[in-house]
Design a protein around this nucleic acid. Structure first.
Length: 645
DNA sequence: ATGCAATGCGCG
DNA sequence: AAAGCGCGCATTGCAT
């Protein structure tokens, strides 16, 4: 169907259920722009497309979309992106339906691209048919009529996705969870839109420094080896630092001290690796160039990360990440372009495969978090949950000792060590940490002995002591697998399902319940923080970033302690679980220089004004029937500035 | 040209 | 190598 409509046709959709889809010149809402908008609205028989390549139709279309009343039910596939492209906050409407999230909630393993969803849930392949008509071309290079037809069809299938998937979500009793996700999506849109200010001078200087450093290190490596080669290639590097330097490559770096390989992979014939990871080189092989290669890879990576930020920075030197609500198996967020959740911190050299060594630091120029700065007149407040996953572990397993220790705000790992082994010295505390996290991750005895660096029998004994002192832990872990076997899924506190049919992977259910439960908790905490921030009526307070157990807020300097106290209090969500989720607060002018605020200063009740949040995201029940969605009365106007594309 | 797996490593 | 969970990104090397 090729049907060109006018902005007035869009206005007719106001107050109805309408699927909207935008066509753009690319996937970056910072750099690209809209070339057209399609709508599908059976309620008022509007099905069509508007070309918005030129200025006037673009602005008129924007105004029409913006005028859609709050009670319009807007259906989109990946709504956050379309809203960015339109320059319209998803919070302009009480209810938006993101069909990718419907898919994700039904089963987090499923792909979300519209082609696949159409094939799987509508049993048609119209979108694919349009695409294969134009091999090797981008949509923005297609003839206008073809784009129009394609876009209108996208709107049509998205509308159908909603019709099919909403009842499915309701059947699973997950409609309230979906509504929470849609509120979260609105929050994420605001966080992305606001972005984080980049210190371009720091970034530029840091690149220069790292380039010089890398050049220097490259020279050392070439001198050591005696010839030039591509050190980024693990194959070439392995040959250079083992064969050509006369250093024997380990047959199996993980063999026991007597040289006997007792691992379950001993006979698998898999020792073909290049053995060039930094961990292996320094911790196992003790290769003389281990530290050098680690430093080279670090500098090389830092350069790429810093350069990447320049590429995604807008004209105001602000970096806008993309939070993906449907990117993970467990329900966590992921972040990309740029990934703001894995920015190298001050702490350095912690090999993921070995026990944390802990005491090394990056100097300021290497601490890339220093590149992100609070806007003039403001500071960053970071509020993170203390031992968040341990807390969730304790709550889910209902272990009385753990709950008591956590509720009292004590050092849980020390407490566990003392209970199990009668001493809380560093060695036993490390054991305790290793085992506790290992359990959360579903570790086996085999890897525990490797982690604790002790023989199997001793590792088994240490583990048994742990089981004995915490009699509920093992049964809880077993119950999770049991539930998964019986129902094909485990349930989080939030209601979210983690599906798994493969028996071999069911041990991961316990971790999913903990990790994903924490993710849903963070989303609720962040939503409450946002609601409270709005009440302050101060346009200079925003949520800037979310990193799994941490919410970062930008706040005017003069009121930052007041903000910090309230955020800390709210995030503890004392009404949701047996014990509150304790928080730590840090404040600073850059992401890399946050300083811990003394507990007494944050917890000073006399200055806290804490009102219960107006939004209780998981309890706002709305009619789950798609056909008869009833919405609340329009609320007050959004405070988001109008954005024009 | 483009896609994919493997390697390596940053974060929680 | 991997062995305990969850991610994203850059590069190499090979396949199409």
């Amino acid at each position: 169907m090729i049907n060109y409509i006018t902005p007035d046709d869009i206005r007719r959709c106001s107050g109805h259920r309408v699927a909207i889809d935008v066509e753009t010149t690319g996937l970056s809402w910072v750099r690209n722009y809209i070339i057209g908008v399609g709508v599908w609205c059976p309620d008022v028989d509007v099905y069509g497309y508007i070309i918005t390549k030129t200025k006037e139709p673009s602005y008129e279309t924007y105004k029409a979309l913006k005028s859609l009343s709050r009670d319009t039910v807007v259906i989109m596939h990946n709504a956050k992106f379309d809203c960015h492209m339109m320059g319209i906050s998803p919070d302009s409407w009480d209810l938006i339906i993101d069909t990718t999230d419907l898919v994700h909630i039904i089963d987090s393993r499923l792909p979300k691209n519209a082609e696949w969803v159409e094939e799987r849930f509508l049993r048609t392949h119209t979108k694919k048919d349009y695409i294969i008509r134009h091999p090797y071309t981008k949509i923005w290079d297609w003839p206008d009529d073809d784009v129009a037809e394609y876009c209108i069809n996208d709107c049509r299938i998205e509308y159908k996705f909603a019709e099919v998937l909403i009842p499915a979500v309701c059947d699973l009793d997950l409609w309230d969870l979906f509504l929470k996700d849609m509120e979260y999506l609105k929050l994420l849109w605001e966080v992305e839109r606001k972005g984080i200010l980049l210190d371009t001078k720091f970034t530029f200087d840091a690149v220069e420094l790292q380039r010089k450093t890398l050049k220097h290190l490259e020279q050392i490596l070439m001198d050591s080896v005696g010839y030039e080669f591509n050190w980024r290639s693990t194959q070439q590097l392995s040959k250079a630092i083992y064969a050509d330097m006369g250093i024997p490559k380990p047959k199996n770096p993980f063999a026991d001290k007597d040289g006997v390989d007792r691992s379950r992979f001993a006979d698998a014939g898999k020792y073909k690796s290049t053995c060039t990871s930094s961990f292996l080189l320094t911790e196992k092989v003790h290769h003389p160039l281990g530290e050098l290669i680690f430093a080279m890879r670090e500098s090389d990576r830092l350069i790429k990360v810093l350069e990447g930020w320049f590429l995604v920075t807008d004209m105001n030197k602000v970096v806008h990440t993309n939070f993906n609500l449907t990117g993970t198996r467990t329900g966590r967020l992921s972040s990309s372009k740029p990934n703001i959740q894995n920015v190298p911190s001050e702490a350095r050299g912690r090999f993921t495969q070995s026990i944390y060594t802990g005491d090394t630091h990056r100097t300021a120029e290497y601490n890339l978090r220093n590149a992100f700065i609070a806007r003039p007149g403001t500071v960053m407040i970071s509020t993170d949950f203390k031992q968040m996953e341990m807390r969730m572990f304790g709550i889910l397993s209902q272990d009385p000792f753990m709950l008591k220790s956590l509720a009292a705000g004590r050092d849980i790992h020390g407490d566990i060590a003392e209970k199990v082994w009668g001493t809380r010295d560093e060695v036993h505390r490390e054991w305790s940490k290793t085992i506790s996290f290992g359990l959360i991750y579903g570790m086996t005895i085999g890897s525990l002995m490797y982690k604790l660096n002790m023989p199997r029998a001793e590792a088994a004994r240490v583990c048994d002591q742990y089981w004995k002192e915490f009699p509920r832990i093992k049964p809880w872990l077993d119950d999770v697998v049991q539930e998964c076997m019986a129902t094909g899924a485990v349930h989080y506190w939030s209601g979210r399902l983690w599906k798994e049919e493969k028996q071999i992977d069911m041990y991961k259910g316990a971790n999913a319940q903990i990790q994903g439960g924490c993710a849903d908790l963070l989303s609720v905490a962040a939503l409450r923080v946002r609601a409270w921030i709005r009440e302050q009526n101060n346009p200079n307070i925003h949520i800037l970033n979310l990193v799994h157990d941490e919410v970062i807020v930008e706040s005017p300097i003069e009121i930052c302690l007041y903000i910090a106290r309230n955020v800390a209090k709210i995030m503890q969500v004392p009404d949701l679980f047996d014990i509150p989720f304790a928080t730590d607060t840090k404040i600073g002018f850059t992401y890399g220089s946050l300083n811990k605020v003394p507990k007494e200063l944050v917890a000073d009740e006399s200055i806290i004004r804490y009102d219960p949040p107006p939004i209780a995201p998981l309890e706002m029940g709305k009619d789950p029937e798609f056909i008869e969605i009833v919405l609340d009365e329009p609320e007050e106007e959004s405070q988001i500035e109008e954005q024009v594309y």
